[in-house]
Design a binder for these strands. Structure first.
Length: 520
RNA sequence: GGCCCCAUCGUCUAGAGGCCUAGGACCCAGGAUUUUCAGUCCUGUUACCGGGGUUCGAAUCCCCGUGGGGUCACCA
């Protein structure tokens, strides 16, 4: 049995589609599960733009998620080049071979004529098939036309009177009637190859054994099978997995619908999170950076394992209960027969749930390392953070605990990074908990006096002393908590109160209490 | 329109003839814990697209509808 070789063949479009990523993941999993190779091939046949730049975000997404490739851009391989634009001679040679063997023919019909034929067939409600008028030409006539520079395309001669069939790993047996297929163009007038042809030539050349791709290619497979046959090559195994749909729909997730997705009830949340966070990092939700793109999730501070987990569970399941799975585990367990047949909508809520789980698996130290760049990019701490700052962030992350869901959530705790006189208050909360609460101000004043003589500002010590202090006054903690939190952080919610005090320390806590009392 | 694919809670899914008065997770709603929030722990609501078969028995097999989707290029 030969080694399993799968491939993913993106076009360098400047971003990585999350649905494409899911397809790539399944392909990667299949190769890795079998100890085979995963190849990245770039379909850049008609790219005018800067390839390098347009390719980077795609490679970046693979790297971020840890989906390594064995052959392809940056690393090359035994079947280089891996860019279709650099392989045109191979396609031309293959086309010439088919031409010589009579399995393809030069079609001198003008595009206008072909189009008219197609439309006529449509009007008469009959299946359009190629006229093959050029096939009736004599060799002399053909030579004459070529000599005169009459442009032509090369079409594959579809063998009439038979069927093409595949045994798809997910769809089962699927077949098409060749009598209903027009002869597909495999080479353009300018000599360049078309996708359905180039793709097959490459799959043969790269020794691809398993083609795992999105189901929108299912129909293409009929043509490709004929090309494999014409080229005398063994066709690979096919697995057409369902496409990823927009949240709560069965429609293919598309970059063109981004405007609509903003109002999609499930998707909305993600857009709003992006709007709130991304500007702090100096970027913004855009055509290239939005919840359809992998990079969005990276920028927002999702963990790779969360995105991977969500993607793996989109259209695939292990059993009736296993939800949280690492990439290594999924690699071990992945099988194509457990891929669901229907399209699956991306579920932002579920993704968030996986994110919470995987965040809970990370140590405080790990979270700190991952959060620091966010704070630095947002300018909340100076670029190379000092040892003291790192220690402070560690303490904050520790106190935040499960409140930190996305790495970028750290950005919403500015109150721990601003100067005391710059603190912004939740005015509604301040009104309710401080101004309108008759007991609040006197209590805060008394507390300030008491804290002056409280040297130990550790959470545990504060917990004990303040509880005792309140008890001595015959008051429940509830009386103090809200007003004090508002005074210290300007907010109505946050980490435990004693954590807030310890984080800010003696001096800053005192200053903030005084400022709060003064602004009433 | 032709061809092809698909169809279980709101969502992601389990289910390969009896284990199904359909299971899990997310979401949602209650409750408990708690100084707030978050978390955690309980509890709860909600689904087999419709109609015919086959069978002692169908979510599961077959057929027909219906619905959804993909694809029909000198795009990939």
């Amino acid at each position: 049995m030969s080694t399993v070789r799968t491939r993913f063949a993106p076009s360098p479009t400047g971003y990585m589609h999350i649905g494409g990523m899911r397809t790539a993941l399944f392909s990667w999993l299949w190769a890795r599960k079998h100890g085979g190779q995963f190849i990245l091939r770039i379909d850049d046949t008609d790219q005018q733009r800067n390839r390098e730049e347009a390719l980077q975000p795609i490679l970046r997404a693979f790297k971020w998620l840890g989906l390594t490739w064995d052959e392809g851009p940056e690393i090359g391989g035994p079947h280089a080049p891996y860019f279709q634009a650099q392989r045109s001679d191979k396609y031309r040679a293959a086309a010439a071979k088919l031409l010589a063997e009579g399995k393809a023919y030069k079609d001198f019909e003008t595009p206008e004529q072909t189009k008219a034929d197609r439309e006529a067939a449509e009007k008469e409600k009959r299946q359009y098939v190629s006229s093959r008028s050029s096939l009736a030409l004599s060799d002399a006539e053909r030579a004459d036309l070529e000599a005169k520079g009459q442009p032509y395309v090369v079409r594959l001669l579809v063998p009439r009177g038979q069927k093409v069939a595949i045994h798809d790993h997910i769809r089962g047996d699927v077949e098409w009637d060749c009598n209903l297929m027009p002869d597909p163009v495999i080479q353009r007038g300018d000599g360049s190859a078309l996708y359905n042809f180039a793709s097959v030539v490459d799959d043969i050349d790269l020794r691809i054994t398993d083609v795992i791709r999105s189901e929108e290619h299912l129909t293409n497979t009929s043509i490709q099978m004929l090309v494999f046959q014409a080229l005398g090559a063994k066709a690979p195994e096919f697995a057409h997995i369902p496409y990823v749909a927009a949240p709560a729909t069965t429609k293919k997730l598309s970059k063109r619908e981004i405007g609509k997705y903003r109002t999609n009830p499930q998707f909305k949340k993600l857009f709003e999170m992006g709007d709130a966070v991304l500007p702090k990092l100096g970027v913004a939700v855009s055509e290239a950076l939005n919840p359809v793109m992998v990079e969005f999730y990276e920028q927002m501070g999702f963990l790779p394992e969360a995105v991977l987990n969500a993607l793996a569970r989109l259209g695939w399941s292990l059993d009736d209960k296993t939800e949280n799975m690492s990439l290594a585990f999924v690699t071990e367990q992945f099988t194509l027969d457990r891929v669901v047949k229907g399209p699956a909508g991306l579920d932002p809520d579920k993704l968030l749930a996986y994110q919470e789980y995987w965040m809970s698996q990370r140590s405080v130290e790990e979270k700190v390392v991952l959060c620091l760049p966010y704070l630095e990019r947002a300018g909340m701490i100076p670029a190379p953070a000092s040892t003291e700052q790192r220690a402070f962030v560690a303490k904050l992350v520790q106190s935040l605990g499960p409140r930190l869901k996305l790495l970028s959530d750290i950005l919403s705790y500015e109150e721990y990074f601003v100067a005391d006189d710059q603190l912004i208050y939740d005015e509604k909360g301040f009104q309710k908990r401080v101004r309108d609460d008759a007991g609040a101000v006197p209590l805060l004043k008394d507390l300030a006096v008491f804290l002056k003589t409280t040297p130990d500002f550790g959470t545990a010590a504060l917990d004990a002393t303040i509880h005792a202090w309140m008890e001595s006054r015959g008051m429940p903690m509830g009386q103090l908590v809200h007003a004090l939190r508002l005074a210290l952080t300007g907010k109505t919610a946050g980490p435990g109160l004693f954590d807030c005090l310890e984080l800010l320390g003696h001096e800053r806590s005192m200053a903030r209490i005084e400022r709060a009392v003064a602004r009433v």
